[in-house]
């Protein structure tokens, strides 16, 4: 294991997301989590953001049907759900691979060679930006500032941060993913 910056030590290990675009919203343990989220807010509408995150966790992305289902659950119109889902870049409005690799190309990372890192990720995974690799494992995208300007280049793979990524350590980093 590489010596990552201590800040990432507490982060969850990257997991290969088991997502099912047809999974029910919400069943089993997710139903419990959904109920818990609702309990945190005075109105159902207020729970929209965390519920969208939960829906994305279950299904991998927010299809129109998913948004419509969330609207039903929260007594909103589908349009209102779309308004919020389309505002935030953390919601995937189209399918992504098992690993969503987000490379920061904001100013600090860019000055430190983020462009090259991005290129390396794309060539290693054999994809275009935003596309899903042939094996379904990867989607590589550019992202705005991840808040780690002191450790450029910052990369986010699913829920885990990687700092000081260089083009050279991209292959090893990908190889570590289960």
């Amino acid at each position: 294991m590489r010596d990552w910056h201590p800040a990432v030590a507490a982060a969850e290990p990257s997991q290969k997301a088991e997502r099912d675009p047809a999974a029910p919203l919400f069943g089993g343990v997710y139903r419990e989590r959904f109920e818990r989220i609702l309990g945190r807010y005075p109105t159902k509408r207020a729970a929209l953001l965390p519920v969208l995150h939960l829906a994305q966790e279950v299904r991998g992305w927010l299809a129109p049907e998913t948004m419509t289902r969330v609207a039903e659950l929260l007594d909103l119109t589908p349009a209102q759900v779309r308004a919020v889902a389309s505002f935030y870049t953390m919601f995937n409005l189209k399918p992504v691979g098992s690993y969503l690799v987000q490379v920061c190309t904001n100013i600090a990372c860019d000055l430190c060679g983020a462009g090259k890192v991005l290129e390396r990720f794309l060539s290693e995974t054999g994809t275009e930006p935003g596309a899903i690799s042939a094996d379904g494992r990867y989607t590589v995208v550019e992202t705005e500032c991840l808040g780690a300007c002191g450790f450029a280049t910052a990369v986010l793979i699913n829920d885990r941060f990687y700092e000081s990524v260089t083009p050279e350590n991209v292959p090893a980093l990908l190889a570590e993913l289960p």
Partner: peptide, 24 residues
């Protein structure tokens, strides 16, 4: 009292729209 129109996206991509592809 039928919130079918919303602002979607943000910044210079923001527009008024309905649920994707649907007329109301």
């Amino acid at each position: 009292r039928e919130p079918t129109l919303v602002v979607v996206q943000r910044g210079d991509r923001a527009t008024i729209d309905t649920m994707a592809g649907e007329l109301f």
